[in-house]
Design a protein around this nucleic acid. Structure first.
Length: 452
RNA sequence: GGCGACGUAGCCAAGUGGUAAGGCAGAGGACUGCAAAUCCUCUAUUCCCCGGUUCGAAUCCGGGCGUCGCCUCCA
C-alpha cells in the first residue's frame, strides 16, 4: 500500500518514496529542555511516534532521531538563575521528558543533544563562510539570506513580504533583517564554546541541520515538527544546508497543528499550559495518547475536558472488549478491521479516521461476542484490535487475573453465595474485593475479575 | 498588512462530486438478583452565510463573515 503524506514544501499530499528502499529515516524537532514540558509539546512527539510505528508495521526499517535543544537563551537564563551548570539543568528536564515519554508510550529512538555537536556545527558554519553564504559581525556569524534565492520556499513567503522585526528587534550587526544567527558571540563565559570567530554559542537552527545529517545522512526522508516551526526554524535549516547539499536536507516536511486551550495555542508564554503530570490523577496516560491522536495531525486540537473524558471512556471500552475477547478467542491469522485502519493511516496519516475504525471494530467484536461467534472469529477481532492499539501506541490495561490465593478464594466464595442466592453475602464479598483493587463482573459464563 | 490553515449535531471529530464515519454526553428498549459490561433504536433533511457550476455539492468556483497559526530562537 502506498503511503501518502502532506509535504509542507510542496503544499501537496505526496507518495512517500523512501530514498533507501525499504528504509525510512525521520528527524523530529524535539523540545528545548529548560522547564517541564506541557502536553502540547507531546502532541508532536506522539504523532511522529505513531507514524514510525505505522511505517514499521508496513515493513519499513525506520531510523528516527529526535533532538534535545539544550542550549539557547532560555536554558542559559534558567541555569544562571539557579546558579547551576547547563548540563545540570538540562539533565533534569531531559529526565522528566523521559518519564512522560515512557508513560505516553513513545518508543526509544536516537536522542542527540545539541551541546554534543558544537564542533560539527562550527565546521558547518565555517564551510558556509567559505562559500560566501555567511559573514561574521562582531564575534557573531550570520547566514546571508540574499545569498540563497530560494529562501522562503517552505513558508511560501519571500523575506521581503514579511514584516521583519514585528515581534523581535533586529540585532545590530546583521546586514539584512532577514539574516539569521549561526553563531552568537559570548555573553557569559560560563556558557560558551570556542570557535574561529571567538567564544560563543551556536544559533538555534544549526543544530538540527548538523545532527540530522550526522545520524541520517542527507537528504533523508521525513523532517517533522510543530507547524509553528515552519518559520523561521525549518526555513533556516533548509537555507543553511542547501549550499553544502544540493539535494536538500529532507524530502518531505511534515508539520502537526497546535494543541489549543481556550482557542489559543498552548504555550508557556501564554501561560495556558498543563503538563502530563497535571492530568495523570484523572486520566490514564493511554487516554491522553488516544486523545492526542483523536484529530487529524494537521488540524488544531482543543485540549478540553470533555474531549479527554471521551478519550478515557473510549480507552475503557477498548479494555473491556479485550477482557471479553481474552476469555473466548483462539489465535487467528486474520486481523479484523486492520485493512481499513491502515488505509486511513496511509492517507496522510489520518489517525482520527483510524480511531473511528478501531471503535467500529470494538463494537463489531462486542456484537460477535453477544452472538456467540466462533473462537477463531473472535481471535481475528482480538488480533485486529491489538494491532491497531500497537500502532496507536496505546497499551490498554487489561488487568489480567493472577493467582493471588486470597482473591481466588473470595471469588469462589462469592460464586458459591450467588449459587445459593445469598446475594447480600455476594455483595459483601464484591465490596471486599473492590477494596483489594479487584473488580468482579458477572457474565453468563460465570464471574470474571481483573485488577482495576 | 502578507502568508498558511480552518468553520460539520450538546461536545470532540471523520468525510473533498453521488446523497452525513466514529467517540462522548442524552433518551428509550434488551439482558441482569443488584452492579458492571454489552447490544439495539432514537438524537444534523443538513454541513458559517450568499451567489454560481453540475443531473447531483458539506465536498468545485466567486464573494462575504468568523476563528486560529506564522511573520526571527515557539512542538
Amino acid at each position: 500500500m502506498s503511503i501518502r503524506v502532506h509535504n509542507t514544501l510542496s503544499g501537496q499530499i505526496e507518495t512517500l518514496t523512501p530514498i533507501h528502499p525499504g528504509e525510512v529515516r525521520i528527524y523530529v524537532c524535539g523540545p528545548t529542555v529548560y522547564d517541564e514540558l506541557h502536553i502540547g509539546n507531546f502532541r508532536c512527539f506522539v504523532v511522529f511516534d505513531s507514524l514510525a510505528r505505522f511505517l514499521r508495521q508496513e515493513g519499513y526499517q525506520v531510523t528516527k532521531v529526535q533532538n534535545f535543544t539544550d542550549v539557547d537563551d532560555r536554558t542559559i537564563a534558567q541555569a544562571k538563575s539557579e546558579g547551576i551548570s547547563l548540563r545540570e539543568l538540562t539533565d533534569r528536564y531531559i529526565d522528566l521528558y523521559y518519564r512522560d515519554a515512557r508513560l505516553l508510550g513513545i518508543e526509544d529512538q536516537i536522542y542527540p543533544r545539541a551541546t554534543d555537536y558544537v564542533a560539527e556545527m562550527v565546521a558547518h558554519i565555517a564551510r558556509l563562510i567559505e562559500l560566501g553564504h555567511a559573514y561574521t559581525a562582531d564575534g557573531s556569524v550570520y547566514f546571508s539570506v540574499d545569498s540563497y534565492p530560494a529562501y522562503g520556499q517552505l513558508s511560501h513567503q519571500p523575506p521581503e513580504e514579511r514584516q521583519a522585526g514585528l515581534r523581535v528587534e533586529m540585532e545590530p550587526g546583521k546586514r539584512v533583517a532577514a539574516d539569521f544567527a549561526l553563531w552568537k558571540r559570548e555573553t557569559d563565559p560560563a556558557f560558551s564554546w570556542p570557535s574561529p570567530w571567538g567564544p560563543g554559542r551556536p544559533g538555534w537552527h544549526i543544530e538540527c541541520s548538523v545532527m540530522s545529517a550526522h545520524h541520517l545522512g542527507v537528504p533523508f526522508d521525513i523532517h517533522g515538527g510543530g507547524i509553528d516551526l515552519v518559520f523561521p526554524h525549518h526555513e533556516n535549516e533548509i537555507a543553511q544546508t542547501a549550499p553544502l547539499q544540493p539535494e536538500g536536507l529532507a524530502r518531505i516536511w511534515m508539520h502537526n497543528g497546535m494543541l489549543t486551550l481556550h482557542d489559543e495555542k498552548m504555550a508557556k508564554s501564554l501561560k495556558n499550559t498543563f503538563r502530563l503530570s497535571d492530568l495523570t490523577g484523572r486520566y490514564p496516560p493511554e487516554a491522553i495518547r488516544l486523545f492526542l491522536l483523536s484529530a487529524h495531525y494537521r488540524s488544531p486540537l482543543a485540549a478540553d475536558e470533555e474531549a479527554m473524558d471521551a478519550a478515557r471512556a473510549g480507552l475503557r471500552r477498548i479494555e473491556n472488549v479485550l477482557r471479553r475477547l481474552a476469555a473466548k478467542s483462539r489465535p487467528a491469522a486474520e486481523l479484523e478491521g486492520w485493512e481499513r485502519f491502515r488505509a486511513s493511516l496511509a492517507d496522510d496519516f489520518n489517525t482520527a479516521e483510524a480511531e473511528g475504525v478501531l471503535f467500529d471494530t470494538v463494537r463489531g467484536a462486542n456484537t460477535a461476542l453477544d452472538h456467540g461467534a466462533s473462537p477463531a472469529a473472535l481471535g481475528a477481532y482480538l488480533a485486529g484490535i491489538e494491532r491497531m492499539c500497537q500502532v496507536l501506541g496505546v497499551r490498554p490495561e487489561v488487568g489480567a487475573a493472577d493467582d493471588d490465593q486470597e482473591v481466588l478464594q473470595l471469588v469462589s466464595a462469592r460464586e458459591a453465595a450467588r449459587r445459593s442466592r445469598d446475594f447480600p453475602e455476594a455483595d459483601r464479598i464484591r465490596l471486599k474485593l473492590r477494596e483489594l483493587g479487584v473488580v468482579v463482573e458477572d457474565t453468563a459464563d460465570g464471574s470474571r475479575w481483573y485488577r482495576a
